[in-house]
Write a protein that binds this DNA or RNA. Structure first.
Length: 490
RNA sequence: CGGGGUGUAGCGUAGCCCGGUAUCGCGCUUGGUUUGGGACCAAGAGGUCGUAGGUUCGAAUCCUGCCACCCCGACCA
């Protein structure tokens, strides 16, 4: 294994792949397209889960669990939904294996064919709505606010660790409401939750917007999304929140009796974020030295590396550092004091930088004599020698500062890479530079398709904060009343 | 699924054109010396050369099929 990572400038995707593996986040599995999330990677995901789950609970949702398998018939109930997912579903056809009578290990027992094939869920709207039918009779049963943490399978052609895998972990919220207004409010509320999480925990700025009809979720009336910009100038859809209208209620016959004794279909939403956020997190901040993790999601926030000659010095350092470790932990900081002696300090420095540990403290004999300790921050790679006394407060402040600074840096990058263009030539020129392009579009699917065909750029979203502004479509010259955001995307 | 490429120890590789049972580095084990930015010395362990078949006295090497992975397209969170 060579020591340094491929650089982002040389080969961005190779840099990404190598980083995921070297930082011990994940690796490919024996099954094509599936990934093994390793302990270090999983602990980041767990931190994301915890934060999101708390936010879901605060907004009134509860968790439940629905099965992995979906009867094939369920999937055909909502027409556009099937169309969207049919091409990428894994199907269970048999329930038993047997020994090959010809000797070659086990084979599928042809006598064990299922009467109705089962689909491995690509998403759970159908199973969940078939249950909601039994759970909802009256307006008093509404709203129904449920979330589940689960794995889903979408048989993708080309996969990349975290960004697109055949099986991935996610959460999917599925809610049912008495009124359209309330369902839309829920959809918008969850989009806000996602944006809040992305910005305040992941330190990743996002654009909130709605998808065009082409990019909409299969079965939704409206898809809201958060879009982030990666360091290579490509956009990444980081989360979606769908207003389902009455589509699934009609498909699964979910009706309720209102206060006015009127029978009506319920209104639905669904919303999800996945382990793809891990990919977003990696690409948003990391550099050629390795991961850069926001303190709020870093499994190890502070690592302490002792530098010593002989056991006596090590013991003195341990004695000095232990109280610091204890008090930092008491303040809720996750600390690793790495006293292992099978690696040199230099190796440890490089290793913890690769893993994105926000703060490194190094203490050696020199510091012991001077009453100092060295603090290195991962985001800027600055090292400062400072007084040992009072270091705890400095660490706490620095963690907050890193969280703020990496957000500011990512935001500055996005601002710099967001181009407002008015002509087709400008559009193409800026597209090559990468980034978001804010331009007028005539609102037709044909034009959107045409632009995609010509440039590989898609409309990421119509930003929620887009101003009313008269203009002409970048391609057709037809009138437009607001700008949309284009980019090449993951 | 189309076009291109690659499969040799845990990882990265040499050898392949020109057939004779595998090279080097990292990592690993043991012992010693080290430790302020990826330490050094010594001794070890580890390989049915992706897989199935063919040619041959003999195949990592030549031929054919298959599989996997990577890059570029079509599809997607």
């Amino acid at each position: 294994m060579s020591k340094s990572l491929p650089s982002r400038a040389d080969n961005y995707s190779e840099w990404y792949n190598e980083l995921v593996k070297r930082a011990d986040l994940a690796e490919n599995s024996a099954v094509r397209g599936c990934m093994i999330i390793k302990p270090y990677g999983y602990s980041i995901w767990e931190k994301m889960q915890r934060a999101l789950d708390d936010m879901f609970k605060e907004t009134g949702h509860t968790n439940a669990y629905f099965p992995l398998f979906i009867p094939k018939s369920f999937l055909s109930k909502e027409a556009s939904h099937v169309e969207g997912f049919a091409k990428e579903c894994a199907v269970v056809t048999h329930y038993r294996l047997k020994n090959d009578p010809n000797g070659g290990g086990v084979i599928v027992d042809p006598d064990a064919k299922l009467e109705e094939e089962l689909i491995v869920r690509p998403t759970s709207e159908t199973v969940i709505w078939s249950s909601y039918k039994n759970w909802i009779q009256s307006y008093r049963d509404l709203p129904l606010l449920i979330n589940q943490w689960a794995n889903v399978v979408r048989w993708e052609m080309r996969t990349r660790l975290f960004l697109r895998t055949a099986e991935f972990l996610w959460q999917e919220g599925h809610t049912a409401h008495a009124t359209k207004k309330e369902a839309i409010e829920e959809t918008e509320q969850m989009l806000e939750v996602y944006a809040d999480f992305a910005e305040n925990f992941m330190a990743m700025p996002v654009v909130k917007g709605i998808k065009t009809a082409n990019e909409r979720f299969a079965g939704a009336d409206e898809t809201y999304c958060i879009e982030a910009l990666m360091q290579d100038g490509k956009a990444l859809q980081a989360g979606t929140s769908h207003f389902l209208g009455q589509n699934f209620a009609k498909a699964f016959d979910v009706k309720f009796l209102s206060k006015e004794n009127q029978l009506d279909y319920v209104w639905g939403t669904s919303w999800g974020v996945s382990t793809r956020l891990m990919g977003a997190l990696i690409m948003a901040h990391s550099d050629d030295q390795g991961l850069v993790l926001p303190p709020k999601l870093a499994p190890i926030q502070v690592v302490i590396v002792p530098i010593y000659k002989g056991e006596e010095q090590l013991n003195a350092i341990i004695e000095k550092v232990n109280p610091l470790v204890k008090s930092l932990r008491k303040s809720g900081v996750s600390v690793k004091f790495d006293t292992s002696d099978n690696q040199s300090p230099g190796f440890k420095f490089a290793e913890y930088e690769l893993k994105g540990v926000p703060i490194r403290l190094a203490i050696g004999n020199r510091d012991m004599e001077n009453g100092t300790i060295e603090l290195a921050r991962r985001d800027t790679r600055e090292k400062t020698s400072m007084a040992f006394d009072g270091i705890e407060q400095v660490v706490l402040d620095t963690l907050e500062d890193i969280q703020t600074k990496i957000y500011a840096k990512a935001l500055a990058f996005r601002t710099e890479k967001t181009h407002v263009v008015n002509t087709w030539d400008e559009f193409n020129a800026k597209l090559e530079e990468g980034g978001f392009i804010s331009a007028h579009w005539d609102g037709s699917s044909e034009t959107e398709e045409k632009i995609k065909e010509l440039t590989k750029a898609t409309i990421r979203c119509i930003p929620l904060d887009a101003k009313e502004e008269a203009g002409t479509c970048i391609l057709t010259g037809n009138p437009s009343n607001k700008r949309v955001l284009f980019a090449r995307a993951y």
